[in-house]
Amino acid sequence: MQHTSTQDTLVGLFVAAGIVGLFFLALQVSNLSSFTEQNSYTVTARFENSGGLKVKSPVSAAGVKIGKVSAIHFDPKTYESVVQLSIDSQYNTLPDDTTASVFTAGLLGEQYVNLEAGGSEEHLKDGGKIEITQSAIILEKALGQFLFKSAEEKK
């Protein structure tokens, strides 16, 4: 009987350790605890070019992460990229003339959407639209323009 009860304890410890491991992975390693879809609202922004933006790219305001990109698709009528931003609902006081721009974190870093608040009294609502947007800066395009310009100046 002594033998079986120590065995029970060991199996119990093993199962508990495994479950603790799973919880550790869920809470400490992944983003389960920090941001969930439930308490967030969605706004859309249209960009001429959304560059290397991906689903789950961060959305930040004043350098603080407040949400993430939940969907990106191409609008075949206006030839624009339609980006859905899901923003944490505790930040529901963004004015409706907020500017959205696609920026790059560092020279080689990942791309993110930066929101810059405007001066309007009205707030952005769930399903709302961000009217003023600034496209991603495509490095090749900018370099091309620069080279073209400096060649023109030499003439």
Binding site: F14, G18, I19, G21, F24, L25
Partner: peptide, 15 residues
């Protein structure tokens, strides 16, 4: 039943 628990432990301890 043991395998997922062992794999979770492996990853957690590794991290």
């Amino acid at each position: 039943l043991s395998m997922p628990l062992l794999a979770a432990l492996f990853s957690a301890v590794g991290i």
